[in-house]
Design a protein around this nucleic acid. Sequence first.
DNA 1: AAATCCTGTC
Length: 665
Amino acid sequence: MRRCAPFCLRKLSYNDLRGFVPVKECHEHFWGSFGAQAVRLSTEFNVLGCEEGRHVDVFQRTHHRDLLKSSDVKTSQQARKLVERGCLQPDPLFYNRLLKKCVELGDLREGRIIHALVLTSEFKDDIFILNNIINMYVKCGSLGEARICFDEMPAKDTFTWTTMIVAYTQNGRPEAGLSMIPKMLHLGLKPNNFTFSILLKASGAISSAKHGMHIHTLCIKYGCDSNVYVGTSLVDMYARCGLIDEAQSIFDGLVSKNEVSWNALIAGHARKDRGEEALKLFQSMKREDFDPSDFTYSTVLNACASAGILEQGKWIHAHVIKCGVKLTDFVGHTLLHMYAKCGSIEDAEKVFARLVERDVVSWNSILTGYAQHGLGHKSLEQFDIMLKTGMQPNAITFLCLLTSCSHAGFVEQGQYYFEMMKTYGLEPKIEHYVTIVDLLGRAGKLDQALKFIRDMPVKPVAEIWKCLLGACRMHRNMELGVYAAEQTFDLDPYDSGPYVILANMYALAGRRNDVAKVRKMMKDSRVRKEPACSWVEIENAVHVFVADDDTHPQSKEIYDMWESISAKIKEIGYVPDTSHVLLFLEDHEREAKLQHHSEKLALAFACLNTPPKSTIRIKKNIRVCGDCHLAFKFASTVIERDIIVRDTNRFHHFRNGSCSCGDYW
DNA sequence: AAATCCTGTC
């Protein structure tokens, strides 16, 4: 204790001494402990015209303040020990500062001790302190203890209830948070801005427009809807519930908005795959003099990533550089993700090299990039480097590795990693099981895949069977395919995919009656096939095509261009693969059907509108069809260009007549 | 005297 004294004495100034009330109880102890130094202090006080009695309190307050300013946990403990020894006379503020310190440091153990200390003090019923104790438990991650304190509190106020709602909402139990509101209202407690923001967040988290709208009406009733936090939460809630237009109109009507409100709206559009709208909003935001933050950049970069618009992504990157935003966690990862997702793995590698710090997410992002670009070897090499740097892989890391192996056909390696993840204490989740089925299935080991499914410790979900079904189509195994399809119909009757695959398999086998049967099933279950489309970005504009599209202004040129490409590739050996057409048509009709698939139109359009030799990047909302894949291989030779096609889960790089996927996808 | 809204890898 003596150690602390000089530190405290040095800090005293006249301003510290003014207006403090003496604490008599500590007086004696103080003099006894500090002896000569206290006398010196006393002299200084006398010079300043203070009474002796004030010293102790000055000591206390100064001491608390200085102790609590430091982020060193030892000082918080020191402060507490002084109280335990009776050298300090704590007031409620003292406890609250200590609790705040525990929250900052996430120190649950220390928090519990302070809780105990409060319980033995005269403030054991102080609602303010008890509220802060609950908050401390919540922020330190102990929901259970928070709840016990909550239940045991004799009198609760709005803060108490709000804190508990925050606790549930931020710990993945938004329904539990929402369920507290009726009771709170019943007790006559008025929710405030804090309560409403968190309730709206909870509604958004479960995408429940019903709850959200109810909370919205309460916001209005309690006059909280003009608060900027509440307003922003409203925008976010509607966006997360899929009501993006409602979100936009709330945003437009906001009395006060800040950059967070903009971010919420931009993120909403980005989630809805409205990349261009998100970018437009980004522009408006800057026009209206709101400063984009890390949040904004990662949001718009993500919008570019999902829309696959590389040029505009680069433009945002330029902004990031111009504004001196560091490539730390969020911005760095979304930038890397954007380049990988827009088909430029080289740029993604450059970003990875320049990241200020690399955490497990950075590594996962680059591994995912390699996996999606079919660079299986690179992915595994990178993983070795990751381990050498001492970075701990997580469940997602292994998912990336398994995907890499699956796409590259590395069956044994994949199984090795699957076992390896367990040695890292990671329990395989359903996604991992799906990937192993995919790995085995693609490699033609269908029986092994089925045995794997049977032996799985978890119940198979629809995804598992869809995977097996895809493999059965690839390897023409009708019997197992039918079985897998039946399983998916039970588990996920509304997905069109399995019906279409099964119908195709029947069609290939010439089983017309069965095709009709599947069609009827589709009709009965009201399943609709998602329309296939492809898109390309040319000079900051996105051009979307569907099959047989004739709506584009350049339509005639596009068809002529495709005819010309088609003629040239036939000369060097392209024979249309009509097995990909479901309908029972004559051969020439089947070919006609194939020739105007959306990706072919997109390719022709890109040839017309981009400089010779430049890389063509096409995005698709579903898997690339087998015939288009074949045609594009020949086309890459004929037009002397690299063609990169992104489908739902991977990239195909066509160059000089072959594809990076090695025809294995 | 305390707290509330927006972003990343699958």
